[in-house]
Amino acid sequence: MTEFTKRTTSPFRYDVVGSFLRPQQLKDARAQFAQGQISRAELTQVENQCIIDLIKKEEAVGLHAVTDGEFRRSWWHLDFLWGLQGVEKAQAEEGYVFHDEISRAETAKVVGKVSGENHPFVQHFKFTQAHVSAGTQVKQTIPSPAQALAEFERPENLAGIKQFYASLDEFCADLVKAYNQVIGDLYRAGCRTLQLDDCTWGALADWHEHPEHIPAYGIDATALDRNKEAFVEINNAVLKGLPADLTVNTHVCRGNYHSTWSNAGGHDYVADPLFTRERVNAFYLEYDSERAGGFEPLAQVPDDKYVVVGLVTSKSGQLEDKAAIIRRLEEAAKFHPLDKLCLSPQCGFSSTEEGNILTEEQQWNKVRFIKEIAEEVWG
């Protein structure tokens, strides 16, 4: 019988990406707050109770690293950017384009010099940390620096950068410092597991295979290689010099909004530099559909790094065939050692507050299903 390494830090053999379906009580409270019917303090009280309830459910289902479900956020990424100094919430010219629908049109606009002091996510982390059982780890999810750069480089946002910065390089330097400030504050608050969520690589993979999908705002096929370099450089600039006991993983996403998606294409084009050069401990990768391509690019992941194979979809409540998932894990192990693989959903269950189209019971059944498979494969 094969002996596998026992996981004591993230990623664990069965894991989740981060977000969970918002309970109706929380959705109602957010709507009431938006309409001025309850105060911020009253909304926070509802959020607190819903997060405490979620933590209990995560622990009951056997998760070793839990999150707050991103219950205090509207978006998986924008709320983090809105929490930076010098950044404000703004209307976008168009929402994010998904396969079947277009999202709400919101973005983050630079309105001054960017910095990371007093970020609200630090207090959010402290609350979650204070309510877990002994031995349970808290995973903090934030958008990657590359994702932030991509958002700020949207045409309607570039004017703000030009108003306060002499060059994009100067802006990027402040963005790196802002991330360093937030991550440092999270670390001092006790955070030891950080996940950088990143849709930029999925977009580049799609645009390389399908140039017709490239947005018509200043990006062309010849710029994709430059974007690859820019994204890995800014991610690594933030990752450089972090404490040795801070585990940093990344989730590479192809879009997850109301059970639809935005990008297709394998990891072949982005494997170098993503797998070969990005200084993370593990890669959470989407593999729940044919849009993900093959496992061959996993051969470029260094043997000392982990791959969390997202074979179970969060977009549907229907359970997959267990034998088929195990076969897929065996296929992935031809390109990266099985001892360095883990299993998770391909993405969160609710990357935005709208949530995917499945029930809460189906959501937890998915997590139990992943645990069952992991225990069968790795013991």
Rank of each mutant, 00 (worst) to 15 (best):
H208F: 09
A223E: 15
T276A: 11
L196I: 10
W201T: 01
G202T: 03
R254G: 01
D225N: 14
V312P: 14
D197V: 08
D304Y: 11
P211W: 07
D206H: 03
Y269R: 12
K315G: 06
A223P: 12
Y306R: 11
A264Y: 09
R254Y: 03
A299H: 14
K240P: 07
V232T: 13
L196C: 07
V312C: 12
A264M: 09
N235H: 01
F275M: 10
A205M: 02
A244E: 15
P273L: 08
T247R: 15
R291T: 07
S314H: 06
Y287K: 03
Y257V: 03
P297S: 09
P273Y: 05
A203K: 08
W201C: 04
T247S: 13
P243W: 04
H213A: 12
V307S: 04
E290L: 10
S262W: 05
E286G: 06
D304E: 12
A282V: 06
E229P: 12
V308T: 13
Y306V: 00
K305T: 07
C253L: 07
Q300E: 13
K228F: 00
G294R: 14
V252K: 12
D206F: 02
H258Y: 11
K240T: 08
L204Y: 00
P302S: 05
P243A: 05
A237Q: 15
G265H: 03
L239G: 06
D197Q: 01
H258N: 13
E212Q: 14
L224I: 11
T260A: 02
G218D: 02
A244Y: 14
S289R: 09
Y287D: 00
S262G: 09
V307R: 03
P243T: 05
L204S: 04
D225A: 14
L242T: 02
T200S: 01
A205H: 08
G202Q: 02
D225H: 15
S316N: 11
A282C: 12
V301D: 12
G255K: 02
K240H: 14
D225Y: 13
H251L: 08
G218P: 03
R279T: 01
A216E: 06
I214M: 04
P302K: 05
G255R: 02
G265D: 01
G310S: 01
A203G: 07
N263E: 03
T200P: 09
P297D: 08
L194N: 05
N281Q: 15
A223L: 15
N236Y: 04
V248A: 05
A299T: 11
A221P: 10
G265A: 03
T313Y: 02
V252T: 09
V312I: 13
E229Q: 15
Y306L: 00
N235K: 00
D304I: 07
T250H: 07
L196N: 11
Q195R: 11
R226K: 14
G255I: 03
N256F: 02
R254H: 06
N235G: 03
V301S: 12
E233D: 15
L196Y: 12
Y284Q: 08
H213W: 08
A237T: 12
V238M: 06
F231Y: 15
D304K: 11
K228N: 10
V252Q: 14
V307H: 08
P215N: 05
V238I: 00
G294T: 10
T200K: 09
G294W: 10
